[in-house]
Design a protein around this nucleic acid. Sequence first.
DNA 1: GCTTGACAGCTTACACTGTAAGGTTCATTT
DNA 2: AAATGAACCTTACAGTGTAAGCTGTCAAGC
Lengths: 225, 225
Amino acid sequence: MDSSIKKKRARGRLSREMIEDAAFDVIETEGLAGFSMRKLASALGCEAMSIYHHFPSVAHLHEALVDRLVGALEMPDASLPWRQRMRIAIEDFRRIGRDHPAYAAFFVTYRMNSPTCLAWLNGIIGLFRDGGFDAELSARLFRAVGYYLMGAVLDENAGYAKGPSAVNTVSDEQLARDFPNVMAAGRFFGTAEFDKTFELGLDMLLDEMERLRDGADAGQLSGKV
Amino acid sequence: MDSSIKKKRARGRLSREMIEDAAFDVIETEGLAGFSMRKLASALGCEAMSIYHHFPSVAHLHEALVDRLVGALEMPDASLPWRQRMRIAIEDFRRIGRDHPAYAAFFVTYRMNSPTCLAWLNGIIGLFRDGGFDAELSARLFRAVGYYLMGAVLDENAGYAKGPSAVNTVSDEQLARDFPNVMAAGRFFGTAEFDKTFELGLDMLLDEMERLRDGADAGQLSGKV
DNA sequence: GCTTGACAGCTTACACTGTAAGGTTCATTT
DNA sequence: AAATGAACCTTACAGTGTAAGCTGTCAAGC
């Protein structure tokens, strides 16, 4: 009987790393909402509760996943020009979303607080400081650029390109007739346009940051209302 | 016996509007994740399944909530200067987050497709067109500004200011010692700083859009890498 | 006034979730 | 050989959205 063989549990078979690997897989195949401990266990060939020996809760597992993604990030070479370092750091983060699209929505809204994540945050804020901004402006620019990046990663991986969340949808004919601006813009909302659109916004922010540093005294912007 | 009175169900007591009102309440008091049909029903003084007579699913209910929020938005007065119209439209959207903080995370990531929402989208994209941008640039700028706005609303309502999501947190002492940049920046991450930070990033984008329109031929940015 | 049918709300049930509590098996140490 | 403790499993519970079917109530037609 192979049922007896099946019962032979291999001890020490599971590990945090294995579980994390499987979790990334399950999340991408089942979607973020479709992920569950039982599905994860089934992917690992064990029972759900076995995972709890390695991670005391799903929250702890999620934290480990975020840590692994953020921990793999490296700070751009400090010898590069500042603008380029900034670009690289931002694109590195954005790439995580591309590599884990289903996880992106979770990842991007996760309020990091582990040593690994704080080290990365510290480096990124340091990058703003390296740009010549004081503590306050570094903090605010970090946030502002972060907003942009956060929104982009979210939209690129969980946004319109994946179809509407809405239950009641509108036909293409009605779209063309009643909402021509949306219709015309839709052409530039597809996956193929992501890079170009992202670059546009990113360049706007980078341009403005350089202007802010080089330019007007005390870092004032146009001041228009 | 008042139990007999209690049994007297008032017909037509529930309505879509009442249910929506209660849903907003429950979401704000219980949090987005804590919301459920059973809790909503209990807030309404009815059974969960009664709600299904008015909304065929939670998804339909959510759609109605988004529609109500978006439907209440108005386009800024067309006689105002363009930059001001843009600001107002953006701040109006942002205010929804402030008014429904717990719902913000859902609202902002919702892929709208109802007539009400499309009408609003159409107006906003039209606002970009009014700024003098062609269909392509309007689409891309709408997206880029949308990224920023999306990220801001998310962070302001579900972000760091609400405390970390992390299970394992780091002490203040360790923060000061090992992550000084984060420590120094933290001072500008609080709720009180939201407006100023948001304005900074928004002004950067608005400045750049005006430059893009008035300035260099074919709307080229600095072109630096 | 009585009947009828539709509507509004309720009851029950099912398949799913995270996880607390406690049971079992086995490699290692003594 | 016995004991220990790590690794894994079983069972159970309170919660979720919602399908299916039931019941009470009201308005309209006779």
